[in-house]
Structure formats: structure tokens, C-alpha cells
């Protein structure tokens, strides 16, 4: 390669990087500029006193609080369902599975991880139809259905991160407790998992972020534009990502649009914060475990 070819390649790399940075930067700055002006207490709580809203004493009509509340409950439920199953399946894959079933399971979980989230949502919706037909009851799209669908969506990530984490334990650590007479299960529970707490936590926080941002699953399984605070798991609910989508197509005036921008900023901050938390958790816990 002559000198000119090299220069062209270097210029190309610089241009690509600058172009990508500029594009993302422009979008984010645009969001910040439009969204920050609407940031105040009224954005979250409307005309209701913040304390009354937080204690669920009075409903909030003109604020993000119900959507934020819905998202938090939804994410909590989904992750609480997904963690035990994901950890258990990950442990099985890493420590117990024989080669042949392991290959099949790996393949299926790879497929599951790749299925578009809207298809997971569709499956949740289909399940609601089937349940409705079978029991002819009033089981429709609701908070519980959304949480279960979301749990299914993040399950492959949790399985994969648990499995990779366990398989990455170095052989010496892996064998020490076994040599001292610990059973296989004791080794997993008291040595391998605690040893890798940092990576496990990081994987879980990333799963939380994935639940918080997903729109496609919930719009098929029970989220609505205005429902207030749901009083049961079988009710419809509001959520932040759906609110943003809804405003983008149905806003009735500049004020509502402003709130849409602010909501987008809130979600952006939330996901960025979760990401940084995962990053720091991995680093901090790694250090602590190293010096222990």
C-alpha cells in the first residue's frame, strides 16, 4: 500500500468517527435543548402536591408520575421473575449440562435472544387470547402479562451472562473447594457465584435497563396512554417509553410536545444511569474481591 492509500484510509477512519459522533451528538443536544426547559416538579406531578402523589394519596393527571411508577413496578416484576430462572438455567448450562443437550440449549437460547421484541410481545398477546378462550374469564392484556413477557425477553441475556461468568472462573479457584471435600453444589453456591458477584450484578443491571427501555413488548401486552396508578396486577398501566411514543403521534399542542421531550430525556437519563451503574459495579466489586 502506497503512502496515498494509507492517507486515504486514515482520513476515512477520522471522517467515519467524526460523522457518527456528530450525528449522535446533534440528536442528543437537540433533545437536551428542547427537553430541559420543561423540567420542573410540575412535569412529574402536574398540579398534585408531590408528597401526596408519592404516597399514592391523590392521583396525578398531568404529569409523568404514573408512567414512571408503571415503569418501575414493571421492571421490578419482570426482573424478579427472570433472575431466579435465568440464574438457575445459566448454572445448569455451565456446570451440569452434558455436551449434546448443552449444544441444543445454547442454540435455542441464541434464537430466543435474537427474536425481535415485538414477536415476544405478540406471543404474550397470543397467550392472553388463548387464556381468554380457555377460561372465558377476564384475563386480558395487563401489568402481569407485560412483566412476564418482559421477563421472557431478558431471560436469554441473564442465562448467557450467568453461564459465561461461571465458565470464566479460573481452574484453580474452581478446584480448591472441591479438593477440600465440598460437594459440587456447595462449590457453586459458596465459591463460584460469590467469586463472580461483580459480573453477575453487572448482567442484572443491564437486564434492568433493557426492561426499562423496551416499548414493543409492552405496547402489545397492556400499556395504555392513561390509566393512572394500577391497583392490581391484572390492570392496564402507563409506562415511560410508551408515553414517549404516544406523545410523538398524538400530541395536541406545544405544551404536550415539550413534556414528550422531557419524558424522552428522563428515560435517556435513567438508562444512562443504569448503564454507568453496571459499569461501576463491575469495576468496584472486582477491586473489592481482588483485595479480600
Amino acid at each position: 500500500m502506497n503512502r496515498r492509500g494509507e492517507l486515504i484510509l486514515i482520513a476515512f477512519s477520522w471522517c467515519c468517527t467524526l460523522l457518527l459522533t456528530a450525528a449522535v451528538g446533534t440528536l442528543l443536544l437537540f433533545l437536551l435543548r428542547r427537553g430541559l426547559s420543561a423540567f420542573d416538579m410540575a412535569l412529574f406531578f402536574g398540579d398534585t402536591a408531590p408528597l401526596d402523589a408519592l404516597l399514592l394519596r391523590r392521583p396525578v393527571f398531568d404529569g409523568l408520575f404514573p408512567a414512571l411508577f408503571g415503569t418501575v413496578v414493571l421492571v421490578f416484576l419482570a426482573v424478579a421473575c427472570a433472575i431466579p430462572v435465568g440464574l438457575a438455567a445459566g448454572i445448569y448450562l455451565a456446570e451440569y449440562a452434558a455436551p449434546a443437550p448443552k449444544r441444543l440449549l445454547n442454540l435455542l437460547f441464541d434464537v430466543l435472544a435474537g427474536i425481535p421484541s415485538i414477536v415476544i410481545g405478540l406471543a404474550g398477546f397470543a397467550l392472553a387470547i388463548v387464556l381468554h378462550r380457555t377460561f372465558s374469564g377476564r384475563i386480558g392484556p395487563c401489568l402481569l402479562l407485560s412483566a412476564l413477557s418482559l421477563a421472557f425477553l431478558v431471560l436469554p441475556y441473564l442465562i448467557r451472562s450467568t453461564q459465561n461468568t461461571l465458565e470464566a472462573v479460573d481452574p484453580v479457584t474452581r478446584r480448591t473447594a472441591l479438593a477440600l471435600g465440598a460437594s459440587k453444589l456447595q462449590n457453586i453456591l459458596y465459591v463460584l457465584l460469590p467469586n463472580r458477584m461483580a459480573d453477575l450484578t453487572g448482567g442484572i443491571i443491564l437486564a434492568v435497563g433493557r426492561c426499562a427501555e423496551d416499548t414493543a413488548v409492552i405496547m402489545l401486552t397492556g400499556v395504555v396512554a392513561s390509566a393512572g396508578i394500577p391497583d392490581s396486577l391484572l390492570r392496564q398501566y402507563e409506562a415511560l417509553p410508551f408515553y414517549i411514543y404516544y406523545i410523538s403521534s398524538q400530541y395536541s399542542g406545544p405544551d404536550e410536545l415539550e413534556r414528550g421531550f422531557a419524558a424522552a430525556l428522563v428515560l435517556l437519563f435513567l438508562c444512562t444511569a443504569l448503564f454507568l451503574l453496571a459499569f461501576l459495579a463491575q469495576r468496584r466489586l472486582k477491586e473489592r474481591l481482588f483485595y479480600r
Partner: peptide
């Protein structure tokens, strides 16, 4: 730092991107 920034970008919600694009692009 650049690689970490790229990792951070993978976490930006799709709906936020779409919203910004809808009113800018």
C-alpha cells in the same frame, strides 16, 4: 474512552432515538 462511549451508546433507548429523529431528521 471512545470504546466506552460506544458501549454507552448501545444502551440508548430506541424510542428516544426515534423521538429525536421524528422532530429533527
Amino acid at each position: 474512552p471512545l470504546l466506552n462511549l460506544v458501549r454507552l451508546l448501545t444502551g440508548i433507548p430506541t424510542v428516544v432515538y426515534s423521538f429525536a429523529a421524528l422532530f429533527l431528521l
